[in-house]
Design a protein around this nucleic acid. Structure first.
Lengths: 337, 337
DNA sequence: TTGTAAGCGTTATCAC
DNA sequence: GTGATAACGCTTACAA
């Protein structure tokens, strides 16, 4: 196989500077900061690098050092507005720490997930952050990850053997429901997310707990985690005696519920109070503004990346990290007349 | 340097199967599909692979073949709701074609952009998709990209020397403005995006053209591409004689304008008509539903990845690809009384 | 049909 | 201070 003369390599730099490749490497490598290269030699090398537009090949370096400075980020779907801030958090922390991020959208499809995990292992990523917690259904992979020393961090779900970051969805939803009960509401319906989502399940559980504690019967709907799901679920609740309050498993569903209520001629909060979850930017811009549980999504991402970094540094496995939520009171809730 | 015995390599497989590494490679490599390996040998190899949980090291393969099957996706900010569908489109097409996607958020910051492009070149990505078009400010990089044969595709901006995909923002905005004029509006204000955004500039231009063609004076505001920007810009227009129609540079700004109008006691569309841009999901769920220009963002992403693939296959440079937009008529516009 | 060995572009270990 | 060179884990002539 003939040498590819096009891509400039460390040899070309060495030749241009009249030194050996070892010297070029020493000039570039942070590891050899203590190793002395004569000032004049260093200058020649630096000049050659600039003249040739040389960029070291991280593949070769990674092959040798057994680390790629690359991580995988696995999530259901970046189009779900919940994820972009999280991705941003991961990516910001990653680039700050010198890692690249490979993005993988699984749609919670086991086949896709398996394919992505495979490709990440083949790329020898140093670690993987899994958000949306659909890893447990893949019995084969823990072993492969272990074989290739791939560190794992879970976000949003209690990772059994792995570090994890999440918010306490159950407690937060319990609080939100309690708040509605405190306002005098008794007919409180819960618009829940899909059964496959652990977040949705955790939030449902919190709601049930609060309702049970107040000895109130619960009305629940299962729907998609978006405006459409919220719209349909809300509509289906408006026949007969409508609830006086709606607790939604996320803000998008709440926006859908707003639309359904408006279409039914019901006013928020005069007729029906509404609470959302996540506090996406739009929550402050709908009218009336939406009372919702603020989730520090960006921070979740940052924290996940930091945990991964810790794991890669060889720190002992950390306790699950729990980030705080906050109920943001806005205009969509009223005391029951 | 001692051999790392932990990560299983092709040698371990070869040893376990009692064959040479070349044979293992032949079993795995699609390139050697025509090369015959005896059935019995192949079975032994496959069994060893499964037993050991072996995954080939793509770094080594990439180093040899001078291609990484990885691309970079550079954009301003994934948190901007315009981008997730685009990213999704790129990623779906990429994974289908066997590429990994490394995500880079630049915030339009030249320093960050330069750092990301550098890291992508060092990772020897096969190509880069730049969305949001902030590459021209980096005079150094075209050369480096050429040196390392990194293909480039631009989305949203006419790439001078590179393949590109975009929509005709100017024509679309011209149409949208013409539609409002056709409804009898004369006082039409334009809520524009930031000056640094070429998309914002193109949309502004279209608006000006339509207004000029009708010999109408234009009121323009420059603001952030989000709800907050739309809110402030709309507010600032409501002193004195308010316009009878608002054309917004994107949907998020339109949602902000909705809020400002509601707060000012103005009804949409009875008092003020509103038009958005992008057709994000929420546009169908605000009340009244938002008339807006639908942009095929997901398709833009897919098309970009396909163009990149073509470039990598060595096809001749393609013409700029223009995807169609469509004005979606909903409830936010009314004929002027 | 299978094995041997060179080479991809680095870094690190030794000499000098 | 600097230079040879082995090694990282693969693929692919070329030999056997």
């Amino acid at each position: 196989m003939p040498r590819n003369k096009a891509a400039v390599s460390i040899r070309d730099v060495a030749a241009a500077a009249g030194v050996s490749v070892a010297t070029v490497s020493r000039v570039l490598s942070p590891a050899s900061a203590d190793i002395v290269v004569r000032e004049e030699t260093r200058d020649r090398v630096v000049r050659a690098i600039n003249e040739l537009g040389y960029r070291p090949n991280d593949l070769a370096r990674a092959l040798l050092q057994q680390r790629t400075s690359t991580i995988g980020l696995v999530l259901p779907d970046i189009s779900n507005p919940y994820y972009p801030p999280l991705v941003r958090g991961v990516e910001d922390a990653a680039s700050q720490l010198g890692y690249r991020v490979v993005l993988c959208n699984t749609d919670r499809d086991p086949a896709k997930t398996a394919a992505y995990l495979d490709t990440l292992v083949k790329a020898r990523v140093d670690g993987v952050i899994v958000a949306g917690g659909n890893l447990s259904e893949l019995p084969g992979h823990p072993r492969v990850f272990e074989t290739y020393r791939t560190k794992l961090v879970m976000v949003g779900r209690h990772g059994l053997a792995h570090p994890s970051v999440r918010v306490d969805n159950t407690a937060a939803t319990e609080d939100a429901t309690a708040h509605l009960i405190g306002l005098g509401h008794r007919g409180i319906a819960f618009l829940g997310g899909p059964e496959g989502s652990s977040t949705a399940q955790d939030r449902l559980l919190g709601h049930r707990r609060a309702m049970a504690a107040a000895a109130l019967p619960t009305a629940e709907r299962v729907a998609g985690f978006d405006e459409h799901g919220g719209y349909d679920a809300a509509r289906s609740l408006l026949t007969g005696t409508p609830p006086t309050a709606l607790l939604c498993a996320n803000d998008r569903m709440a926006f859908g519920a707003y639309a359904a209520l408006a279409d039914a001629g019901l006013a928020v909060p005069a007729d029906v109070s509404v609470v959302g979850f996540d506090d996406v930017p739009m929550a402050s811009y709908v009218r009336p503004t939406l009372t919702t549980v603020a989730v520090p999504t960006y921070e979740l991402g940052r924290a996940a990346m930091r945990l991964l970094q810790d794991a890669l540094d060889g720190s002992a496995a950390t306790e699950p990290v729990l980030l705080p939520t906050r109920l943001v009171h806005r205009a969509s809730c009223a005391r029951l007349a």
